[in-house]
Design a protein around this nucleic acid. Structure first.
Lengths: 221, 221
DNA sequence: TGTACATCAGTGAACGCGCGTTCACTGATGTAC
DNA sequence: TGTACATCAGTGAACGCGCGTTCACTGATGTAC
């Protein structure tokens, strides 16, 4: 049986799929192919160390050196993947809050559920987004930090507009503290469920609901 | 200047320290030397991938093959290190609870502080303890799981003995849920402070105190 | 309309490195006779 | 008291592998004249 040749690629003697060169002016297409392949590999492994330049090149069906046409190094590529996924996460939270309507408790709860849903559905990507060397290579703040700051402010604003009869609204310091609690606790939920899949965790929706209610100072649901 | 030769070791032509062979019957000494070196390397890097058999052998001052005298593989060695550190963490929590006296809120709070203190003081080891392949290599439960289960039960017992005037003690399901909240939130605090050292986090003691009070249903401290 | 040339989108061989693991070997030190 | 031997605690060379990165090169395609 002769192998059919897919449009835009052909089988090499070794059997690997080889990507057809882009048309003139379409060189940037390789860049997104590389990003997509790197993301797929990360999604599978959840391991920063498993993302090697040569493995990405193999996955894309391109010479290892071709990666350098678009990324200066493996770290560069990894940083680009992280930023894309980070944007995706913040977008998911914003969308969830919008869909939840005007009630601040609903909005905060919706974001919390969206956060753990993202982590649960993209464990490998989530792990890599938050993976880091203990000693960071450069002291520069990545772009995603400011994106996260906006999100943080939006959550604090929602927390402060929660009506608490007889107790008054949250102060800014209190809301900030609760926002930190939310983030750390949700990260813990995602991370530990990922790292300890054999534990019998409570149902995740119930856990998040109960957590949010306790943190914002309401009684159990 | 002739190099002085340390007791129990001598300098090789290459300049590396070389460990003197153990005396007869003392072969197990190498095992603890290997564990100590592996722990030190992990403490420095916080990265499972950085722990290579050859690097450990270099650190100990021994031939790479000598590792095999005590560990079947790198994974074996890593597992041994993890179990040691895990025992250390659970011991620290038990000690903190004992020192806190009989009040259940004090005991839970003391354990929470001990947890984040352990993580803050041993970030590399903590990271490795909770590092895992996304797909675990073997389906077998490590020994540390049962240790953790005992600790979990102790915390649940403390939570259930917290007096709540007018509300009654926590039910077992409620206490279990709160124990999960505590663990995930504390893990989040340790992990995110480690992974995002440039963020301006709140003072950790205040964060933990506030978190514990919210989770157990008391007002702010 | 032709054609020389510049540019684009890559390729392929080679480098030196550190890795886990194997294999047969080596000294020193106890111990049985 | 000697001495042969077993055991202990390692060693050292070698293997094949995948890695990041370098370097000079190659076709195809557009474009100026």
């Amino acid at each position: 049986m002769t192998r059919p040749t897919a449009a835009g690629s052909h089988a090499s003697p070794g059997g690997e799929r080889r990507r057809a060169p882009a048309r003139r002016g379409q060189g940037a297409a390789l860049r997104s192919d590389i990003l997509a392949a790197a993301t797929a590999m990360i999604a599978r492994s959840g391991d920063v160390g498993a993302l090697t330049l040569r493995a990405v090149a193999r996955e894309v069906g391109v010479a290892a050196t071709s990666i350098y046409l678009h990324f200066a190094s493996v770290e560069d590529l990894l940083e680009a993947v992280k930023n894309l996924r980070f944007r995706e996460l913040t977008d998911a939270l914003a969308t969830a809050a919008d869909a939840a309507g005007p009630d601040p408790v609903d909005r905060v709860t919706a974001r919390a559920h969206a956060y753990v849903r993202f982590g649960g559905e993209h464990p490998g990507e989530y792990a890599v987004m938050f993976a880091a060397r203990l000693v960071p290579a450069s002291g520069a703040m990545p772009a995603r930090v400011t994106i996260a700051a906006d999100l943080f402010d939006a959550i604090i604003a929602d927390l402060r507009s929660i009506p608490r009869p007889g107790d008054g609204a949250m102060s800014e310091p209190e809301a900030t503290m609760v926002a930190f609690h939310l983030w750390t606790a949700l990260h813990g939920i995602v991370a530990l469920r990922m790292l300890r899949p054999l534990m019998d965790w409570p149902p995740v929706e119930a856990e998040v609901d109960d957590l949010v209610h306790r943190l914002i100072g309401r009684g159990r649901a």
